[in-house]
Structure formats: C-alpha cells, structure tokens
Simulated scan of single mutants.
Amino acid sequence: MESVMAATTGEKLLRHWPAALGVLVAVGTVLRLDHGSQGASVVAASGLVYLAAAATTHPGAAWPAFGVTFVLVGLGLVWSGFDPVPWICVAALGLAVLGIVRAGLRPVWSLPLQSAAMLVLGAAAVLAVRAEHVTGGIVVSVALFGHAAWDWWHHRTERVVTRSLAEFCGVLDVLVGAGVLVVTLTM
C-alpha cells in the first residue's frame, strides 16, 4: 500500500514539476529582495519569455528565454550596480523586430498581443525602478498578479507558450508578487 502511495506521490510531483520549480525560483528570488521595487526585473522578464515564443513562433522558445532572464535577474539581485530592466527591454525590442521580419503580425493573438503585453509590463518595470520603494513594490505586485492571470489564460488555452512554462510562470508570479507585497509593506 505504501509503495502505491509513493508511486502516486512521485507521479504527481513529476506531473507538476513546473509548479515545484516555480516555488523554488520564487523563494530564491524573494529571499534576495531588500525592497519590493527590486522585483521589477521579474515583471519585465515575465513579458519577455512570452514575447520570445511569439516572435519565434515556437512555444518552447520561452524556456531558453527564461534562462537568459534568470541570469539577468540574478545578476541584478546580487550585483547592486546592475539593472537588468533596460537589458530585458532592449532584448524585447529586438525580439519584436525579429518576429515582425520573420512571421509578420499574424496570427493576431500572438506577436501583436505579446508585444502589447511586453510594452505594459516593461513600462510597469521601469516605473517600479524609478519610483520610491513602496510605490515600486506595489506596482511590481500588481503587475505580477496581473501576469499570473495571463499565465492562467495561456495555460488554459494552450497558446503561445508551452503549458509547462505557463504553469511555472503562474506559480512564480503569484509567489513573487505576494513576497514583494510582504517585503514592501513590512519595510
């Protein structure tokens, strides 16, 4: 009986590895925050990974894009002189141009929509970086909670990114958004 339960638990963990990875990355991110506006790079990164998939027309391209943003966000969290937000926004602009050259603006729900989302998320990230810490932290939290809804929709419709990325990102966004809010309101 115990081996059956262990197998079932193991199968569940394997099936939900993206959520487990999201928890791990979120905890590591929140523990590095000195103030909420430091989470701005996560907001910008959340838009970039979706834009990468739309621009290349390959849902799996979101995972390598996440890897790049993971390094950039990590550098910003450990090196106080490095702001990853401008780098992520420049990369997003390059991806949007690549997508237009490569695939055009079709289908309507893909590149144009992801570009608009990146524009909103990039603006929110820039605003959060430039604002005082409490306002910046609240902007980051609201943006991440909004992006979590975006993740849920993409997970449900199976559009643009892989389901695993949408699941991972949704968990990450909710937990980092909540963590940023706690850090912001308890400073």
Rank of each mutant, 00 (worst) to 15 (best):
V120N: 05
G28S: 06
R15N: 05
G76Q: 00
L24R: 09
A26N: 08
L93M: 11
G177W: 03
A7M: 11
L175V: 06
S46H: 14
L119K: 04
L111K: 07
A128C: 01
L181D: 00
V101K: 10
A45I: 13
F168Q: 04
A143E: 03
G36Q: 02
L119E: 04
W153P: 12
V183T: 12
A6V: 15
L21E: 07
V49N: 11
W79R: 12
T135E: 12
L121Y: 04
F168L: 02
G177N: 02
Y50Q: 15
G137V: 04
R106A: 05
V25Q: 00
T9W: 10
V140D: 02
V101W: 11
R15Q: 07
A52G: 04
A40D: 01
T8G: 15
T57Y: 11
E158P: 06
T8Q: 15
R159G: 13
F66N: 00
W79V: 02
M187H: 06
R130C: 10
L33W: 02
W152M: 14
S3R: 15
A6P: 13
A55T: 08
L75Y: 03
I138C: 14
V90A: 13
L165W: 13
W153L: 11
G94P: 07
A123M: 09
T184A: 03
V161W: 09
F145M: 08
P59S: 05
A53I: 12
S37N: 14
A131G: 06
E11F: 15
L33A: 02
W79G: 01
G67W: 01
R130F: 06
V142E: 03
Q114P: 09
C169R: 13
L172F: 09
R15D: 08
V30S: 01
L95C: 04
T9H: 14
T157W: 08
R102I: 07
V90W: 09
R159P: 07
R106L: 08
V30H: 00
G67I: 10
L175K: 05
C169M: 02
L33I: 03
E167L: 15
A92D: 04
W17I: 05
L119C: 06
L175Q: 07
V120I: 12
A96M: 14
T184Q: 07
A61T: 11
D83V: 03
G170T: 05
G177K: 02
L165K: 13
L48Q: 11
T9Y: 12
E158V: 15
M118P: 04
G36I: 02
A20L: 06
F70Q: 02
R102E: 10
G28H: 01
A52Y: 06
G136T: 08
V161H: 07
G94K: 00
G104K: 14
A117N: 09
V71F: 02
L105G: 10
C169T: 04
L77Q: 00
L119R: 08
Q38C: 08
V176T: 03
G47L: 09
H147G: 05
A62V: 09
V174P: 02
V25E: 01
T184L: 08
V85T: 14
P107F: 02
C169N: 06
L127D: 13
D173P: 14
A6F: 11
L121A: 06
V101E: 10
A54D: 13
W87M: 08
V134Q: 10
A54P: 14
G137F: 05
V42P: 05
V182F: 14
M1D: 14
W153D: 05
